[in-house]
Design a protein around this nucleic acid. Structure first.
Lengths: 195, 195
DNA sequence: CCTACCGATCGGTAGG
DNA sequence: CCTACCGATCGGTAGG
């Protein structure tokens, strides 16, 4: 949840640093002492800004889930055809993954360490996102715009394909983020074509 | 490295249990005491079968990397066209992912916890696999069989798409592993078509 | 925001 | 393969 401008609150800094640390070391391997160092304070002082290490993870996952759901709602509200909706959705998701890589990476990998209720909520939102994505796809198939396929296979496969941003981030090949994003979208949209 | 038949050695059992535990809890969150329980022994006794917890991870990742490389070599040796080679490669990889899910999942997520040399070796093998995959793809593009694309984007995207087996494993939808595999391959091969 | 500190747990060893 | 145990480190609290 980075703000564009100045005056970022201490709490926001903490969340940013936590996401960065969790991404590079993994949630379990990340220690509050290490996080404290990144914040230039003692470990004990962190507890003035968060209730626990797990709460930081929860806030990261919640932020990501909310962002996904907001994108979905915005796309559904747009009065365009299935093809444009899917393209818009993929674009939104890629922008999210590129601009907030640490957050998405951590939520994707470390949601298993959420506590029971938070984990259930997270998984429900994920499932909901997939179902609404599948609904758009099905609409497009019925209109004959997309080739027929089992959306319970195709949608997860498409979403997984987007995770190749992880490859791109690790060793940014010559191309820009925007070019990368465009090529992925172009390939995926082509893969749906009916011809 | 599960054997099909009986008389599986104690060491193999340990590796299997470790992979299962690491997958469900993550490497860092998995304790030797928990692993010992799964093996019906005390934690100290595990050290008669392995040098350390990290060695177990290393053996898991090595086994996976070797399996990938063997598949690639077998495909390269086959005297068929690019289209059949890619299809074969995808089939091999999916079978591997479906039959040895724990091993692949752990190596995909927890290789970061390998020690320096092992990590370097692992990443080199991964990179090598991707490059050889890309070479096959380029061959197909030059022959006009595949539509042109930047393989440094396309190959990681295809490999990422295969990771949707994780979705399938989590909540096996009505379809069988073989049907799932066929549908993914069909979709990916279609996405490469030049028309 | 810090000093001081604790109870729990971890990977691993000694010695049999 | 077990009992006994250790040094290190962890998340978190007390009290200011």
């Amino acid at each position: 949840m980075p703000r564009a401008s100045t005056s970022i609150s201490r709490k926001q800094q903490l969340l940013l640093q936590a996401a960065m640390l969790f991404r590079s070391q993994g949630y379990q391997a990340s220690t509050m002492r290490h996080l404290a160092k990144a914040m230039n304070m003692e470990a004990a002082s962190l507890y003035n800004h968060t209730g626990s290490k797990n709460q930081l993870l929860e806030e990261i996952c919640n932020w990501v889930a909310d962002a996904f759901m907001q994108n979905m709602s915005e796309v559904e509200a747009s009065e365009v055809g299935p093809q444009a909706q899917v393209e818009k959705l993929l674009g939104f998701q890629l922008q999210l993954m590129l601009n907030h890589f640490d957050f998405i990476y951590v939520s994707n990998r470390d949601w298993k360490h959420l506590e029971a209720e938070a984990k259930t909520r997270y998984l429900h939102q994920r499932r909901n996102y997939e179902l609404r994505f599948a609904a758009i796809m099905k609409g497009g198939m019925e209109e004959g715009i997309f080739r027929n396929a089992d959306t319970s296979v195709l949608v997860p496969a498409m979403l997984s394909a987007l995770r190749s941003v992880e490859y791109w981030q690790r060793n940014r090949r010559g191309i820009s983020a925007q070019t990368f994003s465009n090529q992925i979208i172009q390939w995926l949209m082509h893969s749906l074509k009916n011809s």
